[in-house]
Every structure is written in C-alpha cells, then in structure tokens.
Design a protein around this nucleic acid. Structure first.
Length: 324
DNA sequence: CACCCGTGGTC
DNA sequence: TGACCAAGGGT
C-alpha cells in the first residue's frame, strides 16, 4: 500500500484491509470487488490486483508458506526491489538495503552525489548501503535510514542542525544540500479531455457501469470513458453533454472530465460499441443509491456527483432537455 | 530504459 | 487554485 503513497493515508486503509482480510488465504480467495473496495482512495489499483496475485502465488504455488529470503520474495507478484528488501531485512534479518525515495536523498547528501536518478547512480547508492548496513538489526538500519529521510533529511528544509549524521555529511560540508539530490526530471503535464458516458434508463432511473478493459482505470468497474474524437461514433444515441465539468489528475495527465448522458431503451449495447468503448461483456444497471455505494474510483465519484447536481429533479432535467 | 499508472495531502 | 509528490512495480 505504501508504494508511492503517503503513509498517513495508508494507515487507516491498512487497518480496514487486514481486518477484512486477515490471512493470506482470505486475500487469495477474495473477490475483486471486495479487493478494489478496500483499496479505494489509494490509487494505482494494479497494486491491489498484484497483491492478490502475490497471495495466490503463496497459497497455490508455495503451499501457503511465505518466502524466506530477499531473492524468493522478488519472485512474488507486486514485490519488487524495495518491498523484497523491506520484508527480508525487517522480518527475516537479511542484510539487504532498502532503497526508496527517502534513502536515495539521504545517501545523495551523505556522499554529495548528484547523479542518482539513473541506473549507475542507483547502483552506487546500493553499493554504499551494502557496505555499511550492519549484520545486526539490518531491518532497523533500513527503517532508520528511511525515517531519517522522512523527518530530518527532508526534501525541503532539512534539519541539518539536529541531524545525527551532520559530521559525516559531504553535502553539508560542501554546502551543496540544495542540489543533492537534484530535482527528479518529470514528464511535462498533458491536458486531456475525457468524456464520462452515463447510460441512463430514465423510466427506472437506473444507470450503467461496466468493467473498463483499456485506457485509464483499466480493469476497474465504473462509467465508460472515451475521448472527444471517439464521441461521433455515439451520435445515433443522441448523447447529451451536461454543462458542467470536473478536474482530475492521473499520472502526468491534467484531465478535464465532461459528462455525456445517453438515454437507452434496451438494457445493453452491441458488441462493436462495447469494444469501441473498451468495455467488457457485462453492463451493470442500478439505481442511484446502489450506485453511490458501488463507485470506487475518485474519477467515477466526481462524475457521479456532477451528474447528480444536474439531474436531481425532473424540473432540472426538463430545463436541460433530458426528458427526450 | 522509457513509459504506464490514482489519489489525497500539502504548501 | 494548482503544482508537486509520496515506504514503486510491471511491461
């Protein structure tokens, strides 16, 4: 959960998660909706699915026995260098360093390294840590390094005045803390316009959601999504765009979300249109109350909120010509 | 190696 | 309001 996610956000989710799925068997056997519901608010839903795959691997391939080394943990789906090192050092007392964003910053300053955002720099950091990590309590060492980065050797306003490593820190000695490490190069933001399709069965006031097979939020259930130049293919359904919009961000995309309401008579759409919309086989129709409990992703929730704002009463609908 | 991916918090 | 980013991993 803590991969690329703030711990303060993780902690309550983690408590809920392990209460609901206390054992590796529970996780391996849970259904995907439960999994995603417990993960909602954390983003990167593929991590949740990988976590479940990891549990399945342990239950089905390893007969329920957990790996007993860094190398073996690396074989587990969703478990990469960092996580394998964290588990191996903290749980198994294996002498292998954890390298996360905090540790990269600490070592970058300690050794006055600037070239840390590529393979060579990372290798240099790993070599150094492998030299200095103690055989005694390697897990505590790793957590201490991460905690030092999180609390003292911070990205902004580091507390060098109270740092226990001040006397050994080359960046401090050379007065180059500001450029160690240099800012990580980031992708330029891209403005992306996204249309959220809300299939609406007006007579029963039910809406449709489905599993998205491609694009943003793939493999999660929610409203069909599409982009502007694909919208023309929906013309025969007379899509009606609501006046409002919402904003959302996914990775380097600055998303402007717009709602297209499509009133349907039948309960399904044909296969070519399903593929066009990157939807899997089944659409799930439900009323607004059930839907509000089913929607998981922030994007779907924002879209639904906007839809509610514009369609909460017949009079509003009529003003919007939604009573076709 | 480059690129993909979600969200809530923070300044 | 909005840019920035966090206990990364998969492809």
């Amino acid at each position: 959960m803590s991969q690329q996610t703030t711990l303060a956000v993780v902690l309550p989710k983690f408590a809920q998660f392990v209460q609901q799925l206390p054992t590796v068997d529970d996780l391996a056997n849970c259904d995907e909706e439960t999994l995603h519901r417990l993960w909602a608010g954390l983003g990167y839903y593929a991590r949740a699915r990988n976590l479940k795959k990891g549990a399945e691997f342990i239950v089905n391939r390893l007969n329920g026995r957990f790996p007993q080394s860094y190398r073996e943990w690396l074989q587990i789906p969703g478990c990469g260098d960092y996580t394998a090192a964290a588990i191996a050092s903290i749980c198994l007392n294996e002498k292998v360093p954890c390298i996360d964003g905090n540790v990269i910053r600490v070592v970058s300053r300690l050794l006055a390294l600037q070239d840390v955002w590529n393979t060579a720099g990372r290798s240099r950091i790993q070599d150094y840590l492998t030299q200095v990590i103690p055989s005694d309590r390697p897990g505590d060492f790793n957590q201490a390094m991460m905690e030092l980065g999180a609390t003292i050797c911070r990205k902004t306003k580091p507390r060098c005045d109270i740092c226990p490593l001040q006397m050994q820190c080359l960046a401090y000695a050379n007065n180059c803390i500001e450029i160690c490490p240099p800012k990580k190069p980031r992708r330029v933001l891209v403005d992306t316009e996204l249309f959220v399709l809300i299939f609406w069965h007006r007579q029963t006031d039910t809406l449709a959601i489905g599993e998205r097979t491609d694009g943003f939020l793939a493999k999660t259930i929610g409203f069909p999504l599409t982009i502007a130049h694909q919208l023309s293919k929906l013309d025969r359904w007379q899509p009606l765009q609501l006046p409002g919009k919402f904003t959302h961000a996914i990775a380097h995309h600055r998303i402007t979300g717009r709602i297209c309401v499509i009133q349907l008579n039948s309960n399904d759409i044909d296969i070519s249109m399903r593929q066009h919309l990157a939807l899997s086989k089944t659409l799930h129709w439900m009323n607004r109350l059930d839907l509000s409990a089913k929607l998981l992703t922030a994007l779907d929730r924002k879209a639904f909120q906007l839809f509610q704002n514009y369609t909460y009463s017949d009079s509003i609908c009529e003003q919007l010509a939604l009573n076709l």
